[in-house]
Write a protein that binds this DNA or RNA. Structure first.
Length: 495
RNA sequence: GGCCUCAUCGUCUAACGGUUAGGACACCGGGUUUUCAUCCCGGCAAUCGGAGUUCGAUUCUCCGUGAGGUCACCA
Protein backbone atom coordinates (compact mmCIF):
# COMPACT_ATOMS: atom_id res chain seq x y z
CA UNK A 1 0.00 0.00 0.00
CA UNK A 2 1.42 3.36 -0.91
CA UNK A 3 0.80 5.60 2.01
CA UNK A 4 1.53 8.92 0.41
CA UNK A 5 -2.17 9.66 0.03
CA UNK A 6 -3.57 7.48 2.76
CA UNK A 7 -5.61 10.19 4.35
CA UNK A 8 -7.16 11.21 1.08
CA UNK A 9 -9.49 8.26 0.94
CA UNK A 10 -13.00 9.59 0.89
CA UNK A 11 -15.90 7.26 0.24
CA UNK A 12 -19.56 7.99 0.11
CA UNK A 13 -22.92 6.35 0.35
CA UNK A 14 -25.29 8.12 -2.00
CA UNK A 15 -28.78 6.66 -1.83
CA UNK A 16 -31.91 8.16 -3.27
CA UNK A 17 -34.68 8.63 -0.72
CA UNK A 18 -37.18 6.55 -2.62
CA UNK A 19 -37.62 3.65 -0.26
CA UNK A 20 -36.39 1.87 2.78
CA UNK A 21 -32.85 0.65 3.11
CA UNK A 22 -32.54 -3.11 2.86
CA UNK A 23 -29.57 -5.39 3.33
CA UNK A 24 -28.46 -5.09 -0.28
CA UNK A 25 -28.16 -1.35 -0.03
CA UNK A 26 -26.59 -1.35 3.37
CA UNK A 27 -23.82 -3.62 2.19
CA UNK A 28 -22.66 -1.00 -0.25
CA UNK A 29 -22.66 1.50 2.58
CA UNK A 30 -20.83 -0.91 4.85
CA UNK A 31 -18.01 -1.56 2.40
CA UNK A 32 -17.58 2.13 1.72
CA UNK A 33 -17.53 2.77 5.46
CA UNK A 34 -15.03 -0.02 6.11
CA UNK A 35 -12.67 1.32 3.47
CA UNK A 36 -12.82 4.83 4.85
CA UNK A 37 -12.28 3.72 8.42
CA UNK A 38 -9.45 1.41 7.46
CA UNK A 39 -7.61 4.11 5.55
CA UNK A 40 -8.24 6.81 8.10
CA UNK A 41 -10.31 8.68 5.55
CA UNK A 42 -13.83 10.05 5.56
CA UNK A 43 -17.18 8.45 4.93
CA UNK A 44 -19.81 10.76 3.53
CA UNK A 45 -23.57 10.50 3.24
CA UNK A 46 -25.11 12.25 0.29
CA UNK A 47 -28.82 12.20 -0.44
CA UNK A 48 -29.56 11.94 -4.14
CA UNK A 49 -33.01 13.44 -4.29
CA UNK A 50 -33.19 14.59 -7.88
CA UNK A 51 -36.34 12.71 -8.77
CA UNK A 52 -39.21 14.51 -7.09
CA UNK A 53 -41.76 12.04 -8.39
CA UNK A 54 -40.26 8.98 -6.80
CA UNK A 55 -39.28 10.57 -3.55
CA UNK A 56 -40.71 8.95 -0.45
CA UNK A 57 -41.59 10.98 2.59
CA UNK A 58 -39.32 10.18 5.51
CA UNK A 59 -37.00 7.97 3.51
CA UNK A 60 -33.94 10.13 4.12
CA UNK A 61 -34.51 9.99 7.87
CA UNK A 62 -34.91 6.24 7.61
CA UNK A 63 -31.62 6.06 5.75
CA UNK A 64 -29.79 8.00 8.41
CA UNK A 65 -31.40 6.03 11.22
CA UNK A 66 -30.41 2.79 9.54
CA UNK A 67 -26.78 3.81 9.21
CA UNK A 68 -26.63 4.94 12.82
CA UNK A 69 -28.37 1.83 14.08
CA UNK A 70 -25.61 -0.25 12.53
CA UNK A 71 -22.90 2.04 13.80
CA UNK A 72 -21.91 3.21 10.33
CA UNK A 73 -21.17 6.74 11.37
CA UNK A 74 -20.59 9.29 8.65
CA UNK A 75 -18.25 12.23 8.88
CA UNK A 76 -20.20 14.51 6.61
CA UNK A 77 -23.86 14.43 5.74
CA UNK A 78 -27.08 16.38 5.34
CA UNK A 79 -27.90 16.50 9.03
CA UNK A 80 -24.40 17.15 10.33
CA UNK A 81 -22.94 19.27 7.56
CA UNK A 82 -19.32 19.31 6.52
CA UNK A 83 -16.85 21.22 4.39
CA UNK A 84 -18.28 20.08 1.06
CA UNK A 85 -21.96 20.66 1.72
CA UNK A 86 -24.76 20.84 1.14
CA UNK A 87 -25.14 17.06 1.09
CA UNK A 88 -28.57 16.95 -0.43
CA UNK A 89 -28.59 17.23 -4.18
CA UNK A 90 -31.76 19.29 -4.27
CA UNK A 91 -29.77 21.93 -2.38
CA UNK A 92 -26.98 21.95 -4.94
CA UNK A 93 -28.91 22.92 -8.06
CA UNK A 94 -26.87 26.07 -8.77
CA UNK A 95 -23.71 24.04 -8.61
CA UNK A 96 -24.93 21.73 -11.38
CA UNK A 97 -25.76 24.78 -13.47
CA UNK A 98 -22.15 25.87 -13.12
CA UNK A 99 -20.83 22.52 -14.19
CA UNK A 100 -23.33 22.49 -17.06
CA UNK A 101 -22.21 25.93 -18.14
CA UNK A 102 -18.67 24.65 -18.32
CA UNK A 103 -19.76 21.93 -20.72
CA UNK A 104 -21.88 24.25 -22.83
CA UNK A 105 -19.01 26.69 -23.13
CA UNK A 106 -16.75 23.88 -24.23
CA UNK A 107 -19.27 22.81 -26.83
CA UNK A 108 -19.93 19.56 -25.02
CA UNK A 109 -23.59 20.06 -24.11
CA UNK A 110 -26.64 21.15 -26.03
CA UNK A 111 -30.36 21.59 -25.69
CA UNK A 112 -32.47 18.63 -26.71
CA UNK A 113 -35.02 20.08 -29.15
CA UNK A 114 -37.27 17.06 -29.40
CA UNK A 115 -40.59 16.45 -27.76
CA UNK A 116 -41.09 13.26 -25.78
CA UNK A 117 -43.29 12.01 -28.61
CA UNK A 118 -40.62 12.61 -31.22
CA UNK A 119 -38.10 10.85 -29.05
CA UNK A 120 -40.42 7.94 -28.63
CA UNK A 121 -40.84 7.72 -32.39
CA UNK A 122 -37.05 7.51 -32.83
CA UNK A 123 -36.92 4.68 -30.36
CA UNK A 124 -39.68 2.73 -32.02
CA UNK A 125 -38.07 3.24 -35.39
CA UNK A 126 -34.80 1.84 -34.09
CA UNK A 127 -36.57 -1.09 -32.55
CA UNK A 128 -38.36 -1.83 -35.78
CA UNK A 129 -35.06 -1.85 -37.61
CA UNK A 130 -33.60 -4.10 -34.93
CA UNK A 131 -30.80 -1.75 -34.12
CA UNK A 132 -29.99 -0.17 -30.78
CA UNK A 133 -31.31 3.33 -30.25
CA UNK A 134 -28.71 6.02 -29.90
CA UNK A 135 -29.66 9.59 -29.32
CA UNK A 136 -26.54 10.84 -30.98
CA UNK A 137 -27.85 9.49 -34.29
CA UNK A 138 -30.40 12.25 -34.01
CA UNK A 139 -28.13 14.93 -32.70
CA UNK A 140 -29.50 18.26 -34.07
CA UNK A 141 -27.37 20.31 -36.44
CA UNK A 142 -28.16 23.65 -34.88
CA UNK A 143 -29.63 23.10 -31.45
CA UNK A 144 -31.43 26.02 -29.88
CA UNK A 145 -29.77 27.87 -27.02
CA UNK A 146 -30.45 26.12 -23.77
CA UNK A 147 -32.91 28.10 -21.68
CA UNK A 148 -33.76 25.42 -19.17
CA UNK A 149 -37.10 24.55 -20.70
CA UNK A 150 -35.60 21.65 -22.61
CA UNK A 151 -33.36 18.88 -21.36
CA UNK A 152 -29.65 19.54 -21.61
CA UNK A 153 -27.74 16.73 -23.23
CA UNK A 154 -24.12 15.72 -23.10
CA UNK A 155 -22.36 15.81 -26.45
CA UNK A 156 -20.44 12.58 -26.25
CA UNK A 157 -17.31 11.58 -28.10
CA UNK A 158 -17.83 7.87 -28.60
CA UNK A 159 -14.86 5.61 -28.24
CA UNK A 160 -13.94 2.22 -26.90
CA UNK A 161 -12.99 2.04 -23.24
CA UNK A 162 -11.22 -0.39 -21.08
CA UNK A 163 -10.79 0.32 -17.44
CA UNK A 164 -10.08 -1.44 -14.20
CA UNK A 165 -12.73 -1.89 -11.60
CA UNK A 166 -11.43 -2.47 -8.09
CA UNK A 167 -13.79 -5.40 -7.66
CA UNK A 168 -14.59 -6.67 -11.13
CA UNK A 169 -11.13 -6.29 -12.59
CA UNK A 170 -10.59 -5.42 -16.25
CA UNK A 171 -13.68 -4.28 -18.07
CA UNK A 172 -14.10 -3.06 -21.61
CA UNK A 173 -16.71 -1.87 -24.07
CA UNK A 174 -16.91 -0.59 -27.61
CA UNK A 175 -17.85 2.93 -28.71
CA UNK A 176 -21.44 1.94 -29.44
CA UNK A 177 -22.42 2.24 -25.79
CA UNK A 178 -21.42 5.88 -25.41
CA UNK A 179 -24.29 8.21 -26.06
CA UNK A 180 -25.67 11.68 -25.50
CA UNK A 181 -27.39 11.25 -22.18
CA UNK A 182 -29.36 13.93 -20.37
CA UNK A 183 -27.44 16.09 -17.92
CA UNK A 184 -30.22 18.34 -16.71
CA UNK A 185 -33.89 17.53 -16.97
CA UNK A 186 -36.49 20.02 -18.09
CA UNK A 187 -37.58 20.41 -14.47
CA UNK A 188 -34.19 21.90 -13.69
CA UNK A 189 -32.94 18.91 -11.74
CA UNK A 190 -29.83 17.08 -12.86
CA UNK A 191 -29.90 13.41 -13.67
CA UNK A 192 -28.02 10.95 -11.51
CA UNK A 193 -25.59 10.46 -14.36
CA UNK A 194 -24.53 14.07 -14.19
CA UNK A 195 -25.05 15.01 -10.58
CA UNK A 196 -23.06 12.22 -9.00
CA UNK A 197 -20.03 13.05 -11.10
CA UNK A 198 -20.17 16.74 -10.21
CA UNK A 199 -20.67 15.94 -6.54
CA UNK A 200 -17.99 13.32 -6.35
CA UNK A 201 -15.58 15.85 -7.79
CA UNK A 202 -16.75 18.65 -5.50
CA UNK A 203 -16.60 16.37 -2.51
CA UNK A 204 -13.23 14.92 -3.48
CA UNK A 205 -14.51 11.37 -3.42
CA UNK A 206 -11.66 8.93 -4.02
CA UNK A 207 -13.59 5.67 -4.32
CA UNK A 208 -17.01 5.18 -5.83
CA UNK A 209 -18.54 1.99 -4.47
CA UNK A 210 -21.93 1.06 -5.89
CA UNK A 211 -24.07 -1.71 -7.27
CA UNK A 212 -23.53 -3.37 -10.60
CA UNK A 213 -26.57 -1.77 -12.20
CA UNK A 214 -24.26 1.14 -13.02
CA UNK A 215 -21.60 -0.83 -14.78
CA UNK A 216 -23.05 -0.36 -18.23
CA UNK A 217 -23.13 3.39 -17.73
CA UNK A 218 -19.48 3.66 -16.83
CA UNK A 219 -18.28 4.37 -20.40
CA UNK A 220 -20.62 7.34 -20.47
CA UNK A 221 -19.20 8.51 -17.16
CA UNK A 222 -15.65 8.11 -18.38
CA UNK A 223 -16.53 10.18 -21.41
CA UNK A 224 -17.99 12.85 -19.19
CA UNK A 225 -15.00 12.84 -16.84
CA UNK A 226 -12.83 13.55 -19.87
CA UNK A 227 -15.05 16.35 -21.07
CA UNK A 228 -14.91 17.89 -17.62
CA UNK A 229 -11.17 17.39 -17.36
CA UNK A 230 -11.58 15.24 -14.26
CA UNK A 231 -9.55 12.29 -13.12
CA UNK A 232 -12.06 9.51 -12.42
CA UNK A 233 -12.11 8.11 -8.89
CA UNK A 234 -11.46 4.46 -8.19
CA UNK A 235 -14.51 2.56 -9.32
CA UNK A 236 -15.63 -0.44 -7.31
CA UNK A 237 -18.69 -2.31 -8.45
CA UNK A 238 -20.55 -4.61 -6.12
CA UNK A 239 -22.48 -7.64 -7.29
CA UNK A 240 -26.10 -7.72 -6.26
CA UNK A 241 -27.53 -9.56 -3.34
CA UNK A 242 -30.30 -11.85 -4.48
CA UNK A 243 -33.50 -12.57 -2.64
CA UNK A 244 -33.94 -15.90 -0.87
CA UNK A 245 -35.96 -17.37 -3.71
CA UNK A 246 -35.38 -17.04 -7.42
CA UNK A 247 -32.67 -14.96 -8.95
CA UNK A 248 -34.08 -11.53 -8.59
CA UNK A 249 -32.19 -8.70 -7.09
CA UNK A 250 -33.12 -8.23 -3.47
CA UNK A 251 -35.84 -5.66 -3.12
CA UNK A 252 -38.60 -4.64 -0.78
CA UNK A 253 -41.11 -6.26 -3.06
CA UNK A 254 -39.76 -9.69 -2.30
CA UNK A 255 -40.67 -9.19 1.32
CA UNK A 256 -37.10 -8.28 2.09
CA UNK A 257 -37.01 -6.65 5.45
CA UNK A 258 -35.35 -3.30 5.78
CA UNK A 259 -32.45 -2.85 8.11
CA UNK A 260 -34.47 -1.29 10.89
CA UNK A 261 -36.84 -4.25 10.85
CA UNK A 262 -33.94 -6.42 11.88
CA UNK A 263 -32.82 -3.98 14.52
CA UNK A 264 -36.35 -3.85 15.89
CA UNK A 265 -36.49 -7.62 16.09
CA UNK A 266 -33.43 -7.55 18.23
CA UNK A 267 -30.70 -8.47 15.81
CA UNK A 268 -27.47 -7.02 17.13
CA UNK A 269 -25.72 -4.38 15.02
CA UNK A 270 -22.42 -6.23 15.35
CA UNK A 271 -23.97 -9.45 14.08
CA UNK A 272 -25.74 -7.69 11.25
CA UNK A 273 -22.53 -5.97 10.20
CA UNK A 274 -20.58 -9.22 10.38
CA UNK A 275 -23.22 -11.07 8.42
CA UNK A 276 -23.62 -8.46 5.71
CA UNK A 277 -19.88 -8.18 5.28
CA UNK A 278 -19.57 -11.93 4.93
CA UNK A 279 -21.90 -11.91 1.95
CA UNK A 280 -19.40 -11.44 -0.79
CA UNK A 281 -16.33 -10.79 1.27
CA UNK A 282 -13.95 -12.93 3.30
CA UNK A 283 -10.36 -12.61 4.36
CA UNK A 284 -9.23 -15.87 2.77
CA UNK A 285 -9.09 -17.77 6.05
CA UNK A 286 -11.74 -19.94 7.63
CA UNK A 287 -12.75 -17.27 10.10
CA UNK A 288 -16.48 -16.62 10.19
CA UNK A 289 -16.94 -14.27 13.10
CA UNK A 290 -15.32 -10.87 12.74
CA UNK A 291 -15.54 -8.02 15.18
CA UNK A 292 -16.06 -4.58 13.77
CA UNK A 293 -12.40 -3.75 14.35
CA UNK A 294 -11.29 -6.92 12.63
CA UNK A 295 -13.41 -6.10 9.63
CA UNK A 296 -11.90 -2.65 9.45
CA UNK A 297 -8.41 -4.05 9.70
CA UNK A 298 -8.84 -6.90 7.24
CA UNK A 299 -11.23 -5.54 4.66
CA UNK A 300 -10.06 -5.13 1.10
CA UNK A 301 -11.87 -4.37 -2.12
CA UNK A 302 -9.97 -6.95 -4.11
CA UNK A 303 -11.31 -9.78 -1.98
CA UNK A 304 -14.90 -8.94 -2.74
CA UNK A 305 -16.69 -11.67 -4.62
CA UNK A 306 -17.53 -10.94 -8.25
CA UNK A 307 -20.67 -13.02 -8.34
CA UNK A 308 -23.94 -12.25 -6.62
CA UNK A 309 -24.77 -13.68 -3.22
CA UNK A 310 -28.06 -14.93 -1.95
CA UNK A 311 -29.40 -13.62 1.29
CA UNK A 312 -29.80 -16.53 3.70
CA UNK A 313 -31.68 -15.49 6.80
CA UNK A 314 -30.92 -18.79 8.55
CA UNK A 315 -27.27 -17.97 8.54
CA UNK A 316 -28.00 -14.56 9.96
CA UNK A 317 -30.06 -16.20 12.68
CA UNK A 318 -27.20 -18.47 13.59
CA UNK A 319 -24.71 -15.65 13.60
CA UNK A 320 -26.90 -13.43 15.72
CA UNK A 321 -27.43 -16.22 18.24
CA UNK A 322 -23.71 -16.64 18.40
CA UNK A 323 -23.29 -12.94 19.22
CA UNK A 324 -26.07 -13.08 21.79
CA UNK A 325 -24.41 -15.96 23.60
CA UNK A 326 -21.04 -14.23 23.69
CA UNK A 327 -22.41 -11.06 25.23
CA UNK A 328 -21.74 -10.46 28.94
CA UNK A 329 -25.02 -10.83 30.81
CA UNK A 330 -25.14 -7.18 31.85
CA UNK A 331 -24.65 -6.02 28.27
CA UNK A 332 -27.30 -8.36 27.01
CA UNK A 333 -29.67 -7.16 29.69
CA UNK A 334 -29.06 -3.57 28.70
CA UNK A 335 -30.03 -4.43 25.16
CA UNK A 336 -33.23 -6.15 26.22
CA UNK A 337 -34.62 -3.08 27.95
CA UNK A 338 -33.98 -0.80 25.05
CA UNK A 339 -34.72 -1.35 21.40
CA UNK A 340 -31.53 0.29 20.25
CA UNK A 341 -33.15 2.67 17.84
CA UNK A 342 -31.26 5.93 18.01
CA UNK A 343 -33.11 8.47 15.93
CA UNK A 344 -31.29 11.76 16.35
CA UNK A 345 -27.55 12.06 15.81
CA UNK A 346 -26.72 12.04 19.49
CA UNK A 347 -29.91 10.77 20.99
CA UNK A 348 -30.05 7.98 23.48
CA UNK A 349 -31.50 4.85 22.00
CA UNK A 350 -35.27 4.70 22.24
CA UNK A 351 -36.83 3.27 25.29
CA UNK A 352 -38.81 0.18 24.57
CA UNK A 353 -38.40 -3.24 25.99
CA UNK A 354 -38.25 -6.75 24.60
CA UNK A 355 -39.57 -8.23 27.82
CA UNK A 356 -43.09 -9.60 28.01
CA UNK A 357 -45.61 -7.22 29.51
CA UNK A 358 -46.00 -9.38 32.58
CA UNK A 359 -42.34 -8.75 33.39
CA UNK A 360 -42.99 -5.10 34.05
CA UNK A 361 -43.26 -5.56 37.79
CA UNK A 362 -40.45 -8.05 38.14
CA UNK A 363 -37.23 -6.92 39.76
CA UNK A 364 -34.12 -6.34 37.70
CA UNK A 365 -32.43 -9.09 39.66
CA UNK A 366 -35.14 -11.61 38.82
CA UNK A 367 -35.08 -10.65 35.16
CA UNK A 368 -31.33 -11.02 35.08
CA UNK A 369 -31.69 -14.54 36.43
CA UNK A 370 -34.27 -15.33 33.78
CA UNK A 371 -32.08 -13.89 31.08
CA UNK A 372 -29.12 -15.91 32.25
CA UNK A 373 -31.16 -19.07 31.88
CA UNK A 374 -32.38 -18.32 28.36
CA UNK A 375 -29.30 -16.62 26.97
CA UNK A 376 -27.95 -19.67 25.20
CA UNK A 377 -31.20 -20.31 23.33
CA UNK A 378 -32.04 -16.74 22.48
CA UNK A 379 -31.48 -16.08 18.76
CA UNK A 380 -32.82 -12.56 18.63
CA UNK A 381 -34.25 -10.31 21.29
CA UNK A 382 -37.86 -10.27 20.10
CA UNK A 383 -37.94 -13.95 20.97
CA UNK A 384 -37.70 -13.08 24.64
CA UNK A 385 -41.42 -13.14 25.46
CA UNK A 386 -42.12 -16.59 24.07
CA UNK A 387 -39.05 -17.94 25.84
CA UNK A 388 -39.69 -16.36 29.21
CA UNK A 389 -43.38 -15.62 29.59
CA UNK A 390 -43.96 -18.39 32.12
CA UNK A 391 -41.42 -16.87 34.49
CA UNK A 392 -43.66 -13.88 34.94
CA UNK A 393 -47.22 -15.10 34.76
CA UNK A 394 -49.25 -18.24 35.27
CA UNK A 395 -50.20 -19.50 31.87
CA UNK A 396 -53.51 -21.36 31.53
CA UNK A 397 -53.26 -25.12 31.48
CA UNK A 398 -52.85 -26.23 27.88
CA UNK A 399 -54.06 -29.83 27.34
CA UNK A 400 -52.39 -29.87 23.93
CA UNK A 401 -48.99 -29.96 25.56
CA UNK A 402 -49.69 -33.43 26.89
CA UNK A 403 -51.96 -34.77 24.16
CA UNK A 404 -49.46 -33.60 21.58
CA UNK A 405 -46.38 -34.88 23.35
CA UNK A 406 -44.86 -37.82 21.56
CA UNK A 407 -44.17 -39.79 24.76
CA UNK A 408 -46.85 -38.59 27.13
CA UNK A 409 -49.73 -39.12 24.75
CA UNK A 410 -49.09 -42.86 24.96
CA UNK A 411 -49.81 -42.94 28.69
CA UNK A 412 -53.18 -43.40 30.34
CA UNK A 413 -54.60 -40.24 31.95
CA UNK A 414 -54.68 -41.95 35.33
CA UNK A 415 -51.06 -42.89 34.98
CA UNK A 416 -50.12 -39.32 34.18
CA UNK A 417 -52.06 -38.03 37.13
CA UNK A 418 -50.44 -40.49 39.46
CA UNK A 419 -46.99 -39.65 38.16
CA UNK A 420 -47.54 -35.96 38.65
CA UNK A 421 -49.01 -36.46 42.10
CA UNK A 422 -45.99 -38.46 43.21
CA UNK A 423 -43.72 -35.76 41.87
CA UNK A 424 -45.66 -33.11 43.69
CA UNK A 425 -45.44 -35.01 46.97
CA UNK A 426 -41.69 -35.30 46.68
CA UNK A 427 -41.12 -31.73 45.55
CA UNK A 428 -43.26 -30.43 48.39
CA UNK A 429 -40.52 -31.53 50.74
CA UNK A 430 -37.75 -29.82 48.83
CA UNK A 431 -36.13 -26.59 49.90
CA UNK A 432 -36.04 -25.75 46.18
CA UNK A 433 -32.34 -25.24 46.01
CA UNK A 434 -30.96 -26.33 42.67
CA UNK A 435 -29.00 -29.14 44.27
CA UNK A 436 -31.92 -30.52 46.19
CA UNK A 437 -34.26 -30.24 43.23
CA UNK A 438 -31.77 -32.06 41.05
CA UNK A 439 -31.46 -34.84 43.57
CA UNK A 440 -35.18 -35.21 44.01
CA UNK A 441 -35.84 -35.21 40.30
CA UNK A 442 -33.29 -37.95 39.82
CA UNK A 443 -34.76 -39.79 42.77
CA UNK A 444 -38.20 -39.62 41.16
CA UNK A 445 -36.72 -41.04 38.00
CA UNK A 446 -35.51 -44.05 39.90
CA UNK A 447 -38.62 -44.46 42.02
CA UNK A 448 -41.02 -44.32 39.10
CA UNK A 449 -38.83 -46.15 36.61
CA UNK A 450 -39.74 -43.53 34.02
CA UNK A 451 -37.53 -42.11 31.34
CA UNK A 452 -36.51 -38.49 31.79
CA UNK A 453 -38.23 -37.62 28.55
CA UNK A 454 -41.51 -38.68 30.13
CA UNK A 455 -41.29 -37.62 33.74
CA UNK A 456 -39.42 -34.38 33.27
CA UNK A 457 -41.54 -33.36 30.34
CA UNK A 458 -44.59 -33.81 32.48
CA UNK A 459 -43.23 -31.71 35.32
CA UNK A 460 -42.00 -29.14 32.85
CA UNK A 461 -45.40 -28.86 31.25
CA UNK A 462 -47.10 -28.54 34.60
CA UNK A 463 -44.76 -25.86 35.91
CA UNK A 464 -44.29 -23.84 32.74
CA UNK A 465 -47.14 -24.68 30.34
CA UNK A 466 -44.50 -24.48 27.64
CA UNK A 467 -43.03 -27.11 25.36
CA UNK A 468 -39.48 -26.15 26.23
CA UNK A 469 -37.67 -24.39 29.02
CA UNK A 470 -34.22 -24.04 30.50
CA UNK A 471 -33.03 -26.79 32.83
CA UNK A 472 -35.90 -28.06 34.95
CA UNK A 473 -34.20 -27.70 38.32
CA UNK A 474 -32.97 -24.20 37.49
CA UNK A 475 -36.36 -23.21 36.19
CA UNK A 476 -38.25 -24.42 39.26
CA UNK A 477 -35.67 -22.92 41.55
CA UNK A 478 -36.19 -19.53 39.98
CA UNK A 479 -39.98 -19.86 39.97
CA UNK A 480 -39.87 -20.69 43.66
CA UNK A 481 -41.58 -23.34 45.69
CA UNK A 482 -45.00 -21.79 46.11
CA UNK A 483 -45.47 -20.95 42.49
CA UNK A 484 -44.14 -24.27 41.24
CA UNK A 485 -46.36 -26.33 43.51
CA UNK A 486 -49.38 -24.18 42.77
CA UNK A 487 -48.88 -24.73 39.06
CA UNK A 488 -48.59 -28.46 39.54
CA UNK A 489 -51.84 -28.36 41.50
CA UNK A 490 -53.48 -26.47 38.67
CA UNK A 491 -52.32 -29.10 36.23
CA UNK A 492 -53.56 -31.91 38.51
CA UNK A 493 -56.94 -30.28 38.77
CA UNK A 494 -57.20 -30.13 35.02
CA UNK A 495 -56.28 -33.76 34.42
C1' G B 1 -32.79 -8.60 -29.16
C1' G B 2 -27.75 -5.47 -28.80
C1' C B 3 -23.97 -4.57 -25.22
C1' C B 4 -21.66 -5.80 -20.42
C1' U B 5 -20.80 -9.11 -16.39
C1' C B 6 -20.86 -13.51 -13.64
C1' A B 7 -20.67 -19.23 -12.85
C1' U B 8 -17.28 -24.40 -6.67
C1' C B 9 -21.84 -28.43 -1.95
C1' G B 10 -29.20 -26.49 -1.12
C1' U B 11 -26.92 -21.48 0.89
C1' C B 12 -22.34 -18.16 2.17
C1' U B 13 -17.56 -19.31 0.60
C1' A B 14 -11.73 -21.28 0.53
C1' A B 15 -8.09 -23.33 -2.63
C1' C B 16 0.58 -18.79 -6.23
C1' G B 17 -1.77 -24.47 -12.44
C1' G B 18 -0.18 -29.86 -8.47
C1' U B 19 -5.18 -30.61 -2.14
C1' U B 20 -8.49 -37.16 -0.57
C1' A B 21 -11.53 -29.70 -3.59
C1' G B 22 -11.29 -27.06 2.82
C1' G B 23 -14.58 -24.26 6.29
C1' A B 24 -19.42 -22.25 7.85
C1' C B 25 -25.02 -22.28 7.71
C1' A B 26 -28.95 -25.72 6.95
C1' C B 27 -30.07 -30.92 7.22
C1' C B 28 -29.20 -36.08 9.32
C1' G B 29 -26.90 -39.25 13.13
C1' G B 30 -24.23 -39.85 18.05
C1' G B 31 -22.41 -37.85 22.80
C1' U B 32 -22.72 -34.09 26.94
C1' U B 33 -26.89 -40.23 32.27
C1' U B 34 -33.67 -34.19 31.61
C1' U B 35 -36.94 -31.41 26.94
C1' C B 36 -35.54 -27.23 23.72
C1' A B 37 -30.96 -24.94 23.15
C1' U B 38 -25.61 -24.71 23.78
C1' C B 39 -21.10 -27.45 23.28
C1' C B 40 -18.32 -31.76 21.16
C1' C B 41 -17.89 -35.79 17.49
C1' G B 42 -19.49 -37.84 12.87
C1' G B 43 -22.33 -37.92 8.10
C1' C B 44 -24.64 -36.01 3.52
C1' A B 45 -23.28 -32.63 -0.24
C1' A B 46 -20.00 -29.00 -5.30
C1' U B 47 -15.87 -27.35 -9.48
C1' C B 48 -22.45 -25.85 -15.55
C1' G B 49 -21.10 -28.55 -20.51
C1' G B 50 -17.51 -29.16 -24.56
C1' A B 51 -12.98 -28.25 -26.84
C1' G B 52 -7.94 -26.32 -26.33
C1' U B 53 -2.99 -24.88 -23.76
C1' U B 54 -0.12 -27.90 -20.15
C1' C B 55 3.43 -33.46 -17.63
C1' G B 56 -0.87 -31.69 -14.82
C1' A B 57 -6.77 -27.19 -15.24
C1' U B 58 -11.71 -25.42 -10.16
C1' U B 59 -7.75 -22.09 -11.65
C1' C B 60 -5.52 -19.95 -18.31
C1' U B 61 -8.00 -19.54 -23.65
C1' C B 62 -12.15 -20.34 -26.90
C1' C B 63 -17.20 -22.06 -27.90
C1' G B 64 -21.69 -23.31 -25.86
C1' U B 65 -25.34 -23.13 -21.73
C1' G B 66 -27.42 -20.76 -17.61
C1' A B 67 -28.05 -16.44 -14.60
C1' G B 68 -27.84 -11.21 -13.69
C1' G B 69 -27.35 -6.12 -15.25
C1' U B 70 -28.29 -2.31 -18.86
C1' C B 71 -30.36 -0.09 -23.16
C1' A B 72 -35.46 6.44 -19.05
C1' C B 73 -36.33 13.85 -18.67
C1' C B 74 -35.02 6.57 -12.37
C1' A B 75 -31.28 6.27 -9.49
Amino acid sequence: MSDSNISSVRTRFAPSPTGLLHVGGIRTALFAWLLARQQGGQFILRIEDTDQKREMQGADQHLMDSLRALGLDYDEGPDIGGPCGPYRQSDRLERYQEWARQLIDAGRAYADPYSPEELQAFREQAQKEKRPFLFRDHRPENPPAWDGSKPLRFKSEPKAYSWTDAVMGKLSTGPEVVDDFILIKSDGYPTYNFAHICDDADMKISHVIRGQEFISSVPNYLNLYEALGLEPPVLATMPHILAGEGNKKLSKRDGAKDVLDYIREGYLPEALVNFIASMGWNDGTEQEIFSRDELIAKFSLDRIQKSGARFDERRLLWMNGSYVRELPLEDLYAKTINTGMAVEPNAAPQAGSYWPEAAADASVEYRMHVLELVQERLKYLAELPELTMFFFEDLPVDPELISGHKQLKKLEPTEIKELLQRSRDSLAESDFSIDDLTQRLNGLLEATGQKPAVLFSLIRIATTQSPASPGLAETMHLLGKDRSLQRIDNQLAAL
